[in-house]
Design a protein around this nucleic acid. Structure first.
Lengths: 238, 238
DNA sequence: GAGTGGTCTAGACCACAGC
DNA sequence: CTGTGGTCTAGACCACTCG
């Protein structure tokens, strides 16, 4: 049984989407909603906070609660090509994605990598490169580092299916967020070899650190995408 | 006078940053904090919600409230090169930014532009192109469209200083968020002409729609960045 | 069972906008 | 002044984790 405020938020969302509440008009005030749902005003406010976070409505003190004209925006990433954040799902809509392992090694981290992963010089890391193919066509090349002590037992099978699923389901680690830098680059030797880039084909690079819920860095990666396989969508609210 | 929960959140934040609370240990529980700050537990929870949003702490039912190991991440964009989101400030740390107006016209929107800006075919739009220079060196080329009825009185002076400031300070419009797609592109004719791109120099393109707080699209733009002038930082929490 | 955060109540007063 | 959302109280019970 979901919390009452969640249930109420869902119902109000339904009414907005089915246009039972006129767009660009004010919603019933919180007292009226509290009466209708036979609850306290605090609970209505909690439901409203939920809808605000979802980008569906906004409030103005002294005026009321209003529906956003455009609430299609999500407040999270949709990065086609990462294991993480449901991006694989985005790809599944497009076609079958497979992975080819180019490298899978163990080594000690460099200074820059120690800083990115918050590990010491003697803490071993996995170092692997994967070529991701969409319907057999090369799409992205991913250079990944992960601390061994966080992801014990990682093997080639996981790399070929989904490292994310292994981390989340088998190791029960929870991912909190990410820090990413996006750039355009000239193609390097590996990009030409594996992504079939010509000299004039730009590469979209995403350098990223993925964090667990307590802030421990789980992964430090450089992902190279072919420029003609779509872009990265980023949405920002408020 | 700030709200009590804000004051409490600030105080707890101070303690965390000054390491009065041991990192990776649990904070005092909400009952203890409520007693200490002589308030109700609801107010403490509101303060905690604030700190959670800021990425400083996280909670686990049945366990407690914990400090994130890495709370440097922000939950907002930092896009060097846009008028918006304090990015100009980012640049000011680097050097003096100036704008050169390549085009400034009025016209009617195409179908795609009507869809992006949510305007009709007979609603006029500003269409301008600006070259942005850092210390005199070309850095980005921005193709912008804005509905005339939202931004009356826009002139070349605003384009040269800051459209954002005009919109926010003089017109008192409030910006809510953005929707962006990031790509790598081969350089086009304008990129070669104004950004001095060679044939092999990739371009980082950001296609963006910026929204006002009620969801009305304010701006539809394509921004082209030289590949060697840094990347775009994106942070995601939760 | 004990201790934690999550939710909820039934009110109260404050801050702000509009008439 | 009226109506709105914002904050706050003092308590209650529930859900979850751990020893």
């Amino acid at each position: 049984m979901a919390a009452k405020y969640i249930t109420i938020a869902r119902e109000i969302k339904r009414r907005i989407l089915s246009q039972e509440y006129a767009a660009s008009a004010a919603l019933p005030d919180q007292f009226a909603l509290a009466a209708e749902f036979e609850t306290s005003r605090m609970t209505i406010q909690q439901a409203m906070r939920q809808l605000i976070v979802e980008g569906l409505v906004y409030t103005r003190q002294g005026q009321g609660t209003f529906i956003r004209k455009n609430f299609l925006q999500q407040s999270r990433w949709d990065l086609p090509g990462s294991d993480y954040f449901g991006a694989t799902k985005t790809w599944e809509n497009v076609g079958q994605v497979t992975s080819k392992i180019i490298r899978f090694e163990l080594r000690f981290p460099t200074e820059k990598e120690q800083a990115s992963l918050l590990v010491g010089p003697d803490d071993p890391v996995y170092d692997f490169i994967r070529l991701r193919l969409l319907e057999g066509e090369p799409m992205s090349l991913e250079f990944t580092l992960m601390p061994v002590n966080l992801v014990p037992g990682l093997n080639r099978g996981h790399l070929e299916s989904s490292v994310f699923r292994y981390v989340q389901d088998d190791l029960a680690l929870k991912i909190m967020g990410s820090y990413r830098i996006v750039r355009a680059l000239k193609p390097g030797a590996e990009d030409k070899q594996y992504l079939n880039c010509e000299e004039t084909d730009p590469v979209l690079e995403v350098e990223q650190v993925i964090y667990l819920e307590d802030g421990t860095p789980l992964e430090y990666a450089h992902c190279h995408y072919r420029y003609d396989h779509g872009g990265i969508i980023v949405v920002n609210n408020g």
